[in-house]
Design a protein around this nucleic acid. Structure first.
Length: 723
DNA sequence: TCTATGGTGATTTTT
DNA sequence: TCACCATAGA
């Protein structure tokens, strides 16, 4: 296999060590831009060619579909054969596959459907209403968050501790939610993982089968794994599989959705004789950018330790622009991008990164005004659009009559005279008689329990679904969908909307038929009926946000969505206290450290040139506020920075601002630790957010449940430690 | 069933 | 400020 030996020689020592490491457990600490994917792909190829492992015995897990696809593609082009026997996928995708194959052992119905987060939100809302709870007091969002958090920890509703009133109510909502999903054969994202975990845990023969099969397991972005994913891995790996995890603790930016960086350390403990390999040579950024990023991240405590270096030159210094306000900031950025393009660069080589989506609007306007092509990442994805979800709800109901959320979604979409009152009657009937909404509706119709107009409307709906079901039988997937959207009245409904939006919706529906056409040729999943497979695909892979993804545009996105990407020219906008680091994060234990990692991720996206921007005045929620430059700016070595001055405006030189770094705080740990729960005589319970100094002289920033954040002197505060 | 109005509250996102 | 919601009224 010449290709492999040849390409091996272009890898650096650390990369080669990772690729050719003898079978065992490995942690690969892969810094930003250190060629992580390349190592993963080579490793797999090496295992197949030099250790004669069959692709069949390898499992590779990623977090996003995009990463999974890329990995699979690169492996196939490297080993020169199809890697279909190998399982490469996301945690959710693999869990889904397991559950389809073993639905019976997992206690699911054969045609279980996947709820995406919007579906989940609706269902939680429905449950809260049914429990007659005040929605203002018990926001569905919060309940949804609670439920997902429990599932991330591996807890079913009956396993969640009921403590105070809040816990008790949440638990009750979770309980009813779980009942509803089970009754309707539905499974949410968290449930996919949890059920897959329980499947392996409770079925020794299933577990043994997969343990025997997967002799080698690779997991990418390990810093993003949550408790449940970790336990699942432990279970699946058993005592025999070798596991290689790849990750970077400095790029852990998802702790707020359950990711546990500590899993990297746990791995070293739980998997015996683990060998650590560090990839520290960076192939992406210039020396200055790297030096600045290294220095910044050095302010965090408890790192696994890693220092990126590069062979490339220092390059340009980082430019810092103090904008007068956010408009000025946006104009400046667009102006510099215009210059970049004028000098022969491409728009797509430029990225503007920001902390919160709200910042994108002003930027967008500036791009529009200057006629520079741009694209905003994120936003609504294809399979999440209302019209697409409507169409899919029809398909789901056709596929499975007991899918209540789908029933509710389309019973009156397009409007067909089934009002709230009627739906309420159907719900009531379903509740008292048991069974699904569809079942209740057919009951009500045969027993003629409705006023005549509503009766006809419901009758027509039932007949419509039945007729469509019958008619599309035996047709191809695309034909099925096309027939359904045409005959359900959905297409006509959107065609009637004369707005630009309406036109786009019609186009999207047509695109859906197109997607179905392509699907039937590509993806065939383990004997699952094609429609069912397509519906799962739609839920698991929401698709790209925008259609013009390949055109040459400047890229606008949040710092979070920039992870994994790289651009020659990068701007980080809004480096201001309260915005970045965000106020909300400052009120959370370890929040600041994560914000700093986010900044690190942002900076390390830049290959050639990095701009940092902040506004001296920023309007937020309609109020103009004086902004303080972000502490992150001061954490960058001054020799890497150069302040940009614009025309007539006067800005404060960095050196001068630097004299008053009053907000720079160290996180020295002493008797107290960050995240610790404490009790104060007057303020009640709180959590330590920040520590300055040490011992009794230390000042503690504590976030109290009742009164918010306060700085207190440890000696005087008389705190009682709770944990 | 559609539209107007007012109250609310406002990070980060993948599956 | 603005977008999202729920509810009221035509």
């Amino acid at each position: 296999m010449n290709t492999l030996t040849e390409t091996l020689s272009i890898l650096n020592d650390a990369q080669q060590a990772a690729v050719t490491a003898e079978l065992g457990h490995h942690v690969v600490l892969a810094g930003a831009g250190s060629g992580k994917t390349r190592v993963l792909v080579h490793r797999i190829a090496w295992l197949i060619e030099n250790r004669s492992l069959s692709p069949f015995n390898i499992l590779a897990v990623t977090f996003t579909n995009k990463a999974a696809k890329e990995m699979k593609y690169r492996i196939e082009s490297m080993i020169g054969m199809s890697a279909n026997a190998m399982w490469v996928g996301t945690f959710h995708g693999i869990a889904h596959r397991l559950l389809r194959a073993h639905w019976k052992e997992a206690g699911l119905s054969q045609n279980f459907q996947i709820l995406d987060s919007e579906d989940q939100h609706r269902l939680v809302k429905r449950v809260i209403r049914e429990l007659e709870l005040d929605e203002a007091k018990w926001p569905p969002k919060q309940a949804q968050w609670f439920i997902n958090k429990q599932k991330d920890k591996g807890l079913r509703s009956d396993q969640t501790p009921s403590g105070d009133h809040f816990q008790t109510v949440m638990k009750k909502i979770y309980d009813h939610y779980e009942e509803a999903t089970q009754k309707n054969g539905l499974i949410d994202f968290g449930d996919l993982l949890l059920s897959a975990y329980e499947l392996l845990r409770d079925n020794p023969h299933v577990l043994a089968h997969y343990q025997q099969r997967f002799q080698y397991i690779l997991i990418d972005e390990f810093q993003d794994t949550n408790t449940l994913q970790y336990e699942w891995l432990r279970l699946l790996a058993g005592k025999t599989a070798y596991v290689m995890i790849v990750g970077d603790d400095d790029q852990s930016i998802y702790s707020w959705r359950g990711a546990q960086v500590e899993n990297i350390r746990r791995f070293e403990r739980d998997f015996k004789n683990t060998c650590i390999i560090r990839l520290e040579q960076n192939y992406r950024s210039t020396g200055n950018i790297l030096k600045a990023a290294n220095q910044l991240i050095a302010n965090n405590n408890g790192r696994l330790g890693k220092n990126l270096w590069t062979e490339s030159s220092d390059g340009d210094v980082i430019s810092l622009y103090a904008a007068f306000n956010e408009l000025d900031e946006a104009r400046f950025i667009v102006d510099r991008i215009k210059t970049w393009i004028k000098d022969g660069g491409r728009p797509s080589e430029c990225a503007v990164l920001y902390r919160s989506n709200a910042q994108s609007r002003i930027l967008e306007e500036a791009f529009l005004q200057a006629a520079v092509p741009y694209r905003i990442y994120g936003g609504q994805r294809f399979y999440e659009r209302a019209e697409i979800k409507d169409a899919l709800a029809y398909m789901r109901l056709i596929n499975h009559r007991d899918d209540d959320p789908s029933f509710e979604r389309i019973i009156n979409t397009p409007t067909r005279g089934v009002g709230n009152r009627t739906i309420e009657i159907i719900r009531d009937h379903a509740r008292t008689q048991g069974g699904s909404l569809w079942h209740a509706a057919t009951d009500i119709v045969t027993e003629e329990l409705l006023p005549s107009r509503a009766h006809t409307a419901v009758c027509e709906f039932i007949e419509l679904i039945n007729a469509v079901t019958e008619h599309i039988d035996g047709k191809s997937l695309a034909e099925q969908i096309e027939y359904t959207i045409r005959n359900s009245g959905l297409l006509t409904h959107y065609q009637k909307e004369k707005t630009e939006k309406g036109r786009a919706r019609v186009e999207n529906l047509e695109e859906l038929v197109n997607a179905a056409q392509q699907f039937s040729e590509d993806d065939i999943i383990d004997g699952q009926p094609i429609l069912s497979a397509f519906l799962s695909h739609a839920a698991l892979e929401a698709g790209e946000g925008q259609s013009d993804q390949f055109s040459d545009c400047a890229q606008l996105m949040t710092l979070h969505s920039a992870k994994g990407l790289e651009f020659p020219l990068v701007f980080i906008a809004g480096l201001e206290e309260g915005l970045f680091p965000h106020q909300m994060s400052l009120e959370e234990p370890h929040g600041l450290a994560e914000e700093r990692r986010l900044c690190y991720v942002g900076m390390t996206r830049a290959m050639q040139k990095l701009y940092l921007c902040y506004a001296e005045v920023r309007s937020l929620y309609g109020r103009e506020r004086r902004a303080i430059p972000s502490r992150f700016i001061y954490e960058i070595p001054i020799e890497c920075l150069e302040e940009v001055r614009m025309r007539s405006r006067i800005s404060i030189p960095v050196s001068q601002v630097r004299k008053t770094p009053s907000f720079i705080k160290t996180e020295n740990e002493g008797q107290y630790r960050i995240g610790q729960a404490v009790k104060h005589g007057k303020f009640g319970n709180g959590v330590i957010l920040n520590i300055e100094g040490s011992g009794n002289k230390a000042r503690l920033q504590i976030h109290f449940k009742k009164t918010g954040s306060k700085w207190l002197v440890a000696e005087l505060a008389k705190l009682e430690a709770l944990s």
